[in-house]
């Protein structure tokens, strides 16, 4: 009997305790909470709002007038339609191949540049190379693609002038499906390698100079030092950057690809994001393209989780 009476009393006491605490906390930090109102509102509307909008992926169509819950529920039909479509393998393949080549050629480029810069003794030369090689980073993607376009003009474009030196026929580079990947990756390296080297340079400057001294005493030359001191020294940074990159393997530079691609190159250039754009925004298949976006987002998220747990085991470096 007594126990029965006691329980609710205890419960209410705890509740008022918590309420009392909350009230006190709200009052004490009232200005901080006031500051966070627009922040929370922003994230709720512009980050979680679209996530809520993902329910469209399970509907037949979207009506701007009736709202998000009025659509006819069709379960996983949108996903099935995508898996069965001719484009499914093409855009998955293109996204992965482009990422694979970008990592293969693009990822080592800034590391090599940083290593070269690290070996320079003259400070002025080093900072000159840095300033110059960072420069392309500040050119907008639109201009870079614009440059690619003018350079690949059939008549007197730079690329075709160079081809003519080797007695090769002029080629419409941006309309050749086999040229899309090399152009995309090389221009990315041209634009981004310098800037990306900053992170590795910082890691290099963090290596303990005593290690170099010690290896010198042991008779190691510059090459040996590079292999046994420098490279191990930046490995943790390299691994973290690689994990980040692998986590984004299903992501592609939507902006640049969209600007670069032409209908004749869709076979190699069409990736998930450009497909979603065309099918969603241009053709109005909102629910279908939302479903494709959702698949992409889920894969990306799980890839990142996987990459992170691998790195935890291998290197004891984690992103969080």
């Amino acid at each position: 009997m007594e126990l029965k009476h006691q329980l609710p009393a205890e419960h209410t006491r705890r509740k008022t305790g918590k309420l009392f605490f909350l009230k006190k906390e709200l009052l004490r930090n009232k200005y901080v909470y006031l500051m966070l109102i627009p922040v929370v509102a922003y994230y709720l509307i512009f980050s979680y709002g679209p996530m809520y909008g993902l329910v469209m992926a399970f509907q037949k169509s979207y009506s701007p007038i009736k709202g998000i819950w009025a659509g006819e529920w069709i379960g996983l039909d949108n996903f099935k339609m995508f898996f069965d479509s001719y484009y499914f393998w093409r855009i998955i393949k293109n996204t992965l191949i482009l990422s694979f080549y970008s990592i293969l050629f693009g990822f080592p480029a800034p590391i090599i540049l940083a290593l070269l810069l690290h070996e320079v003794r003259k400070k002025w030369f080093r900072s000159t190379v840095q300033t110059v090689s960072y420069m392309p980073h500040f050119i907008s993607v639109v201009v870079v693609v614009g440059m690619l376009k003018t350079f690949s003009a059939l008549d007197g474009g730079l690329f075709n002038v160079v081809r003519s030196f080797f007695d090769m026929q002029p080629v419409m580079f941006l309309a050749e499906k086999d040229m899309f990947r090399p152009l995309y990756i090389l221009s990315n390296i041209w634009q981004g390698a310098g800037w990306a080297s900053i992170i590795f340079l910082a890691a290099l400057s963090g290596i303990d100079p005593q290690l170099y001294e010690a290896s010198k005493i042991d008779g190691a030359g510059r090459w040996k030092q590079l292999l046994h001191v420098t490279l191990p020294g930046i490995m943790p940074t390299v691994v973290v950057m690689l994990i980040l990159r692998l986590g984004a393997v299903m992501n592609s530079d939507f902006q640049k690809i969209l600007l670069m691609q032409t209908a004749p190159t869709y076979e190699t250039s069409d990736v998930i994001s450009t497909f979603v754009y065309r099918s969603g925004i241009l053709e109005g298949n909102y629910t279908y393209s939302t479903a494709i976006g959702l698949i992409n987002g889920v894969i990306n998220f799980s890839l990142l989780l996987m990459a992170n747990s691998i790195s935890k085991k291998v290197n004891s470096t984690s992103l969080w």
Partner: peptide
Amino acid sequence: FGGGMIPTFLL
């Protein structure tokens, strides 16, 4: 993780 292009656009 985010809602992606289409839900954001519609929002």
